[in-house]
Amino acid sequence: MKRFFLSAVALSALAVPAFAADMPARTYTKAPAFTAPQVVYNWTGFYIGGHLGGAFAGNNSLEGNNARFLGGVQGGFDYQFAPNWVMGVEAQYSWMDRNTTNFGFPGATVVSSTGANQLGSVTGRLGYTWGPALLYAKGGYAWRDGNGLGVNVAGVPAGFTTSGNTKGGYTVGAGLEYMFAPSWSAKAEYQYYNFGNTTFTGGPAPVVGSRFNSDEHTVKLGVNYRFGWGGPVAGKY
């Protein structure tokens, strides 16, 4: 029995190196390179913000085309889909400096126009986003506080009537918005407001029948806060 046990041990010692020699060589596998997570921007959510800029009435407007300072607030909701498109709704309110312009008519009649000092709008908007940038167009309903017309003849105020001097109208615009930090975005925007035409239907003879357009061109720079829904929200590896 002892001889049998020693023979088995010796045979095993000889067999192990031979078996190891027959095994294939171990393949070296290189560890995958580290890839930084890709930031994904999400525009879906509510936001509020403020803006500053300037307003310029059209050449055929009672307010003239002098620039006026503008500032205000905005708020809205955006929804991102498909996956680079963004649609939403926005309400905006702006204050402006008043602007008085005098127009001379034959017979020494002067029309004094004190411009509207408040503008508002409720618009839909549609945009295309790539990374942190959003290019968009907007359009909808516009409102103003009136344009404060006055007619003077030789320095004496005179009565008059008008048609089409409305407070409601439409607005269209476009802009570029950029997320510069989580939940924060900045924008540059052009917006046009149109309130139709104003026609003098009564008053001193030189002004009756005169017709003017009521509109505003605005340029705004603004900042929005997105309540934690904007900015990088996930990573792809």
Rank of each mutant, 00 (worst) to 15 (best):
K2C: 10
R3A: 14
F5R: 14
F5I: 15
A8L: 14
A13G: 14
L14D: 12
L14E: 14
A15P: 11
A18G: 14
A20H: 10
A20R: 12
P24I: 09
A25Y: 12
R26S: 12
T29Y: 15
K30D: 13
A31K: 15
P32A: 10
A33K: 12
F34P: 09
A36I: 05
A36P: 03
Q38H: 13
N42Y: 11
N42L: 11
W43P: 01
T44P: 04
G45Q: 01
I48C: 12
G50F: 03
H51I: 09
L52W: 04
G53A: 07
A55V: 12
F56L: 15
G58P: 02
N59P: 12
N60G: 12
L62V: 10
L62R: 00
F69H: 07
L70I: 10
L70Q: 07
G72L: 02
V73R: 05
Q74S: 10
G75Q: 02
F77A: 06
Y79N: 10
A82V: 11
P83T: 15
N84K: 09
N84C: 09
W85M: 09
W85I: 07
V86M: 04
V89T: 11
A91H: 01
Q92N: 14
W95M: 13
M96S: 08
D97G: 11
N99P: 02
T100V: 13
F105G: 01
G107C: 07
A108N: 15
V110G: 01
V110T: 08
V111N: 00
V111H: 00
S112D: 07
S113Q: 01
T114F: 06
N117P: 07
L119W: 01
V122G: 03
V122Q: 03
L126A: 13
Y128G: 05
W130N: 13
G131Q: 05
L134H: 01
K138A: 07
G139R: 00
G140Y: 00
Y141C: 07
A142Q: 00
R144S: 14
R144F: 10
D145V: 04
N147W: 09
G148C: 05
G150P: 06
G150L: 07
V151W: 02
N152M: 13
G155Y: 03
G155M: 06
P157I: 02
P157M: 05
P157D: 05
A158S: 14
G159F: 04
F160M: 11
T161D: 08
T162V: 11
T166N: 15
T166C: 08
T171W: 00
G173R: 02
A174S: 10
Y178Q: 03
F180S: 05
S183P: 05
S185W: 03
A186P: 04
A186Y: 04
K187W: 10
A188M: 11
E189R: 09
Y190G: 01
Q191W: 03
Y192V: 04
Y193V: 00
Y193G: 01
N197S: 13
N197A: 10
F200E: 00
G203S: 08
V207I: 15
V208P: 05
G209Y: 00
G209W: 04
S210F: 09
R211D: 08
N213K: 09
D215A: 03
H217S: 12
L221Y: 06
G222Q: 06
V223Y: 00
N224E: 06
Y225G: 02
Y225T: 05
R226D: 07
R226I: 08
R226A: 11
G228F: 03
G230D: 00
G230E: 03
P232V: 11
G235A: 13
K236T: 15
